[in-house]
Design a protein around this nucleic acid. Structure first.
Lengths: 227, 227
DNA sequence: CGTGAGGTTGATCGCTTTCAACGGAGGTGG
DNA sequence: CCACCTCCGTTGAAAGCGATCAACCTCACG
């Protein structure tokens, strides 16, 4: 086992659900997914790793009666399915029309073996993954609905918005129900919280999928209760 | 980097919060903790790894206003602090009088380097860690209070109870408040749910810290909604 | 142009929280 | 040795927040 593979495997295990990385272009093929089309299902053989090229996907689990918990969203540049398990432990589907690159796990490890920079870049990008999962535990267990929605918008803003712009514009590539299942609330409550934030002048919603953040400080005060 | 170290690091990153393992006896010292005495705090330099010898500890995060979310409990045989981070990303304290073995990270990696079995054993034991975190996301986001308590008792039963006994006896080495912060509810609600289970004849509570599981099937029906 | 999915809003219900009181166990000091 | 105190667990009453049920709207699409 070479050091390069070691680094890559380290990355693979640390990255529990989704991580950003630049993967090699070789030995992969891509696939188009429509909204709500599954990429893989819980229990499937975990032979591939997936890089989101465009659109977005969500990883989730469902209970017997249909209740669903979204574990994470993945956006362009993110990679999912890197867990060290022989079968996927959650399902994954597109939340909007998306383009996904499939990479055979075998090929990926071979690539990384030849190019140490790949593993290194992946490792660098994965440092905050565990922390994000801890944040999500706190969010699910201890935050109110309004705080959950504020935290979600805040995270999206920091990740996707133009940092130069005075007013951050974020696009929601998923439905209210997807957001609700991620935050552990209902889609109606998501809607009501967004309206509440809008009426307080903290955000604007020119289109259902577009949010303008007018008062990032107020959003932080609501969503950022961390010590 | 040798293959042994690679496996150990792999383990360290996959094991986000707590994992079972047998660590080498050398190069370590032990420490006694009283109830609610901290083992380390979020932000401390992560120089050591800890093995629970007796008692129990909980890993948790707190919000600015004091709301607390317990990430995981660790019992004798469990190891915590193996994350690949320079500082602890959560706090940890004893939930009852406990004995902890401290292991310098440097020494641990050196040990594993000399004895590949150590890394291999740790890796074997860590396979279910990610799945447990996924289960906990579902529990926090989508289960009712009664289902949460049932799931918690079920997990404890499977982990600690005599498998031969007709009636499983489990000991709770933590307070109701600790359980509540783990399940994302209040201690009063934990109490009420335990009472409800008792009145239904599913469990007995001879002492506050002792639970007898009388009807494991009913407990599974309540707590085990997974598909 | 009809249809269905997604989003918003309203009204009501109910579960969980909050506030409060009480009892028991354990520890401390008079 | 006992009084006292604090922590923990339980239970009750009331309030509140989010869920549920339902109606209506817009928009994309066939």
């Amino acid at each position: 086992m070479s050091a390069h593979v070691a680094i890559l495997e380290e990355f693979a295990t640390q990255t529990n659900v989704a991580a950003r990385a630049e993967l090699p272009d070789h030995a992969s093929r891509s696939r188009e997914l429509g909204t709500h089309e599954p990429l893989f299902l819980e229990g499937d053989d975990a032979r591939s790793v997936f890089e989101i090229l465009s659109g977005a996907v969500c990883c989730f689990r469902v209970l017997a009666d249909g209740r669903r918990q979204v574990i994470s969203f993945a956006y362009p540049g993110d990679v999912i399915g890197l867990e060290h398990s022989d079968w996927y432990q959650y399902s994954c589907e597109a939340t909007c029309p998306s383009e996904i690159r499939l990479i055979a796990k075998d090929n990926l490890f071979r690539e990384a073996n030849m190019n140490p920079d790949i593993g290194r870049r992946m490792l660098e990008r994965s440092g905050d993954q565990t922390m994000r999962m801890l944040d999500h535990f706190v969010l699910l267990g201890r935050k109110s609905a309004l705080e959950k929605v504020a935290s979600f918008l805040l995270a999206l803003t920091r990740r996707h918005a133009d940092e130069d712009a005075l007013t951050a514009r974020i696009t929601l590539p998923m439905t209210r129900a997807d957001i609700a299942d991620y935050l552990g609330i209902t889609n109606e409550t998501v809607s009501r919280c967004l309206t509440k934030l809008r009426l307080r002048g903290i955000i604007e919603i020119p289109m259902p999928q577009t949010i303008l953040v007018r008062d990032i400080d107020a959003l932080e005060e609501l969503g950022e209760q961390e010590t």
